[in-house]
Write a protein that binds this DNA or RNA. Structure first.
Lengths: 210, 210
DNA sequence: TCCCGATGTATCGGCCCGATACATCGCAAC
DNA sequence: GTTGCGATGTATCGGGCCGATACATCGGGA
């Protein structure tokens, strides 16, 4: 899962570990809390061994307020890595639908084709519907067996589940009708983000530096 | 965390692993998905080594449709275990306020004194407020830098955070005014005394073993 | 000058998960 | 009656991920 996230971020631009972690935290929002370094560095090493990324010494592409000549390691995605990223993005296993997995996939939806987006959205919806039904069962059948606090917990969980299903329904409807996420206010005046209204097809002409 | 949950359930009644897992799943609702056996059994072993629980062969207290004379192992909490449970219930570290930790603590609120309940509720609120502020920052400051899907994810996360803060506010208010959880049924003020205002439904008749 | 906080890389022990492998029971089909 | 099968039930293993911890470097203020 984290593998997908890292590959996705490095596809936008090369980074070192610290930046990676920060981007991860903001981009993944609630569904995935900030990643730990105890996870990040071993994973980077793993990706490197697999050949999906390479490391290099400090690099002119990094952000200005940084000085150089440090032990910083900048990671960059390889051609194999991009292939791997595309594979991971498209294929959806059971882990794609839990909180963390769904969050990561969703965060890269602008690089995913519409069919895959719909598949993932619907899979997630099914997952949450199951959770919702389980909660309803407990609340109707086992209500007398549980104390007031436990019941309140179930109720809150049920509410959140119903709300998420509604959210997903809306997203699915939008996808089917070819609209981008509804959201409030403005969207997409990004320099290089071609997520259009009508074009059902290929996003992401994101590339590296010259 | 799981340690607390197991000790809490075994305090209600002795159980074997399979039951434990089922109870865990229903009692902990959304905050904590069903526990894996790959976690459960090692943890039980750990608790046993520590002396918090003991195992014994099949037992007349188990549910009727079950036959005996099987390899089933029934776990029972010890006196030390009860002490341990009380300690864990009362003390609150940082892990008490993440999703899983809070869920477990909350599920046992009927066995927790009011001061501790308030402390935990307020700690959780602070945690979610921080998450909420982070999300607001991203949405106001970094909006232009992110694509529409990522923004939608943040918006949904922000909505959930705001909602949870409101939920917590309500619970805190109720605690302060001496009421039980608002929802549908009042009950429980202090451990093991399920007397409520006007319970629409029969409150939990679970008992402790002498 | 000297320390301090932000930046930055890295490891270690441990929790927890998914996959997997077994054994036993109730029961229905043959 | 025995064969097969799904539900029940216990257990282990490899691996992902986490929190704590240890360092090392840099800019800037006391």
């Amino acid at each position: 899962m984290l593998e997908l996230a890292i590959l996705g971020l490095l596809q936008e631009t090369p980074m070192h570990g610290y930046e990676l972690r920060k981007e991860l935290a903001t981009k993944l929002g609630t569904f995935r809390a900030a990643i730990s370094y105890g996870t990040l560095y071993p994973t980077l090493k793993r990706l490197q061994t697999a050949g999906w990324i390479t490391e290099s010494a400090s690099d002119p592409t990094m952000i200005p307020p940084m000085t150089s000549k440090r032990g910083r390691v900048v990671y960059k995605i390889t051609a194999d890595g991009k292939e791997r990223f595309a594979d991971l993005l498209a294929q959806a296993g059971p882990e794609t639908y839990d909180d963390a997995g769904f969050g990561v996939h969703f965060a890269f939806f602008s690089r995913t084709d519409r069919a895959t987006r719909l598949r993932i959205l619907e899979g997630r919806r099914r997952r949450i519907e199951e959770r919702r039904e389980g909660l309803r069962d407990v609340l109707s059948r086992a209500a007398g067996r549980l104390d007031a606090y436990t019941l309140e917990l179930q109720r809150h969980g049920l509410d959140a589940a119903e709300r998420e299903v509604r959210w997903l329904e809306e997203l699915i409807t939008n996808e089917r009708s070819g609209r981008a996420p509804a959201g409030s206010g403005g969207e997409i005046d990004l320099p290089a983000e071609p997520l259009g209204d009508a074009p059902p097809e290929p996003p992401s002409p994101h590339q590296d530096r010259p």
